[in-house]
Design a protein around this nucleic acid. Structure first.
Lengths: 190, 190, 190, 190
DNA sequence: AATGAATGAGCCTTCATTCAT
DNA sequence: TATGAATGAAGGCTCATTCAT
């Protein structure tokens, strides 16, 4: 049965995701992953041949399913403002609770494997497009200010990356996050 | 003579700064620095005992001398708008020409040496304060919109970190930078 | 049913023989054999516990059935010259078509398992004896030159080993082989 | 001073030559060489990056200086018979005292690094040429039988390879060697 | 100050081998 | 019989670090 192998693989990816979030890409070794998974060397290598392979799988796992949810919301005619605020709330939680901050690892990865740049660029723009769609939707409904939706979306995504990066260095409170997202909101909303 | 020693030290720091910018902190080894400096093991160790020591020296070297220049500008009563645009131009150049993007290395460093967090936080806020001062000055002169100068300054610095990070992954044109800085400007200027 | 098991075993031995011929003994791993046989680890281990076991089986398989054929030929009173030339032709084919060059693997095996030396020595002399018998037969019939048949047989076998070894390193043409075997022939035949 | 490094390098090559002679190429690991040299891992790697590098150096070291000695002998007008017998004596000693039997390692090496085949072929023919020269010289002086000197030389070299190979598997006495070399002599000498 | 030889620790990777299914 | 997951040992390789010169 391949069942068990797939389970182990999923388990490794989940465990490794945590490591990459904490320590970045370069600092995580196959041994770290072994230890974290309580798996022997050979056991790990049966599933992944390098941290590169594990990392790619982590990115795949995280592939945004946000797009779908936004399409649904738009189909239902929900308020763009509410939607955007909902998105911001998700990000705030991720940052406040230290989840999903894999951005720096992604950067390190792009340095270590320049050949993967296109893949990472695609990943960046996938997120951008979701925000752009949301902003365009808000503009159509008259809820948001006019402006180039794409540029604004890029601005937001870039700011979020900076925020995730900085949050590892400076202490960040709920209040701080609220204020910063309010600034972001002013750029978009009426 | 200590003269030559100081020169060598400066040379090592400059060379290492390039390495850290390119490869981050973790990926740079003492051997890398030896090779890049064309210096023997013993030669390097005479000056620095670890990559940590070298890195701190790199950060010290980069300590912002921007504060001084801003104080002078304020004393001279120059336009806040011009000043801010000048700052932005500097950042644009740094990014466009691939300079000074040591941010990710700083992050990695903070993970590797959590004990240095305060030092890094201080470094972050040093930059923030410069922007805050500039914004406050512009508000006093009525050139800038009202608002919490500190928060806005933080927003700008965080965005810049994100931009420096992203610029390593996605291709960034002059035009792109101009538009993004324009968005930033709208947050501050009338 | 043991039937299928025996078939699989034979299949493994045949496949492994090719590997040993190509790569020698030491360089072949159980994993190599698994892969070459498209068999799982457990599947292979059911039949053989180590490369040593597989190799011995390969040698057994190759055990010269030449002896029998020579006895028959002698009983029939065939020409010794023709017989020897026939043998040489077989060897030429083996070398020209890259078959059966397991000699070096045998050597490596003797280093890895010194305890098997007697077995290998026996194997060597089995071949020698065939040639000796053939030479003795030719001498009796007056077709061959006088001389110590045993020594000549050893000489031939040693030369053949050298030829098989060298043929892996230097390019060897049909013509080259013909000339070399002619030299060998001169030692024996009138 | 590079002095010490060169000494160590030479020492490693000499020590490794013994290992390769005993165990062949594939079975010798970098660790084996470390242990045999009583050198740490890093210490060995400072000089050689792989067994391949060490092995090539071993072959270089062994590059035949026989050519020179034969040229001198010919210039002095010495007896070809005596010379050939001298050469044979050297080979007998090497085999009897277990020296210099690196032939199988060479073969294994050629399998492991097919790209080095030309180099090895060249090495083979260097030895052949020495014998060919000697045989040609003997023929000129009327000491040796007529015949293609090159072919005979190849025959001798191939036989020697076979002998070195076989000597690892079968027990070989002085007497045995004397007889075998006598057979070889008959091919050449009057 | 600087060189480069050497050590030893640590991670990488591949296998032989076992075992539950 | 056969599969493939898992273990642990062994060897490869790279470094930080020290030291004699």
């Amino acid at each position: 049965m391949a069942e068990k192998g797939i389970k182990t693989k999923r388990y490794i990816v989940n465990t490794a995701a945590g490591l990459f979030s904490q320590k970045g890409f370069t600092a995580v070794t196959m041994k770290d992953i072994c230890d974290a998974c309580k798996l022997s060397r050979g056991g790990l290598y049966r599933h992944f041949g390098s941290t590169r392979e594990v990392f790619i799988e982590v990115l795949e796992r995280d592939k945004n399913d946000a797009e779908e949810s936004i399409n649904q919301a738009i189909a239902l005619g929900l308020s763009a403002k509410k939607l955007l605020e909902g998105f911001f709330q998700l990000q705030k939680n991720d940052i406040a609770y230290n989840k999903n901050r894999i951005e720096v690892a992604v950067y390190e990865f792009s340095v270590a494997y320049p050949g993967q740049k296109e893949y990472l660029e695609e990943r960046f723009y996938a997120t951008v497009k979701i925000f752009a769609k949301l902003i365009g939707y808000g503009q159509e409904r008259g809820e948001f200010l006019e402006g180039e939706a794409m540029m604004l979306a890029e601005h937001i995504v870039i700011f979020l990356e900076g925020l995730k990066l900085s949050s590892k260095i400076i202490g960040i409170s709920e209040e701080f996050l609220t204020k910063q997202f309010a600034i972001l909101g002013k750029l978009v909303m009426r």
